[in-house]
Amino acid sequence: MTDLVTTLVLGGARSGKSAFAESLVSASALTKVYVATATAGDEEMKSRIALHRARRGEGWITIEEPLALVDALTREASRNRVVLVDCLTLWLSNLMFAGRDPEVEARRLTQFLGVAKHPVVFVSNEVGLGLVPETPLGRAFRDAQGRLNQVVAAAVPQVVFMAAGLPLWLKR
């Protein structure tokens, strides 16, 4: 696929969003860069990360960046590459736990998107479709995730929502 453009892939847990995003990037002739925002804090997360790596296979450059996403994108998306960011939800969680302002970081991200020269595919969770979280932190996270998804969706040319492994194009 030579006409890959910057895309936001949204969905719930196990909706197929990562695999779909990987398929978009894999179809490109550009060098493939995977920016991982997850940290392997426990055995279960280590296992998830290993499964993602195995599914991608060879031919990907992997950058682990839990916080300085815009810096990584500025560096990596400027060299005839396509970058897959998986995922904005973990990035947001990392920002909040580090005491960083998610709105400031979202602004930095959308400013980058306004000048990006090569495509970026973002994966993000749609967390606002379920129950209202019980705790103030849970509600703050859900609200921040919804705002982040909105500003990124407004800044990119394509948005797809994944449900049961099926893509529903929201914006093309």
Results as ranks from 00 to 15, higher is better:
86 D>P: 14
109 L>G: 12
89 T>D: 13
119 P>A: 07
27 A>M: 14
54 A>M: 00
77 A>F: 04
15 S>I: 03
73 L>I: 11
105 E>M: 06
2 T>F: 12
149 N>Q: 12
151 V>Y: 14
30 L>Q: 09
133 P>I: 13
138 G>M: 06
75 R>F: 12
117 K>L: 11
120 V>K: 00
91 W>R: 07
158 Q>Y: 12
63 I>Q: 00
150 Q>M: 14
91 W>C: 02
19 A>V: 10
18 S>F: 07
7 T>S: 09
16 G>S: 07
144 A>E: 01
82 V>E: 13
125 N>Q: 11
104 V>G: 11
86 D>Q: 12
160 V>S: 07
77 A>C: 09
138 G>Q: 07
168 L>F: 13
158 Q>E: 10
139 R>F: 07
10 L>W: 06
37 T>D: 01
124 S>V: 05
148 L>V: 12
161 F>P: 03
39 T>F: 00
106 A>R: 07
18 S>M: 11
13 A>I: 04
47 S>H: 10
3 D>G: 10
115 V>N: 09
99 G>D: 03
45 M>Y: 03
143 D>S: 05
65 E>W: 09
66 P>H: 01
88 L>T: 04
47 S>P: 02
2 T>G: 15
162 M>N: 09
53 R>P: 01
32 K>Y: 04
91 W>L: 09
76 E>Q: 14
161 F>W: 11
13 A>P: 04
129 L>V: 02
165 G>M: 06
107 R>T: 14
76 E>S: 09
89 T>M: 12
69 L>N: 02
112 F>E: 13
105 E>S: 05
154 A>D: 15
108 R>K: 15
61 I>P: 00
131 L>E: 14
73 L>G: 10
168 L>W: 10
75 R>I: 11
50 A>L: 15
49 I>K: 02
113 L>R: 00
89 T>H: 13
166 L>D: 06
21 A>C: 03
170 L>P: 13
116 A>P: 01
16 G>Y: 08
133 P>F: 13
45 M>T: 05
2 T>A: 14
18 S>R: 05
45 M>S: 03
46 K>Q: 12
96 M>G: 08
121 V>N: 03
84 L>G: 08
152 V>L: 11
3 D>I: 10
117 K>H: 08
90 L>P: 02
142 R>A: 08
27 A>K: 15
81 R>K: 15
44 E>Y: 06
167 P>D: 10
48 R>G: 04
57 G>R: 14
164 A>T: 11
94 N>P: 03
111 Q>W: 10
111 Q>C: 13
81 R>L: 08
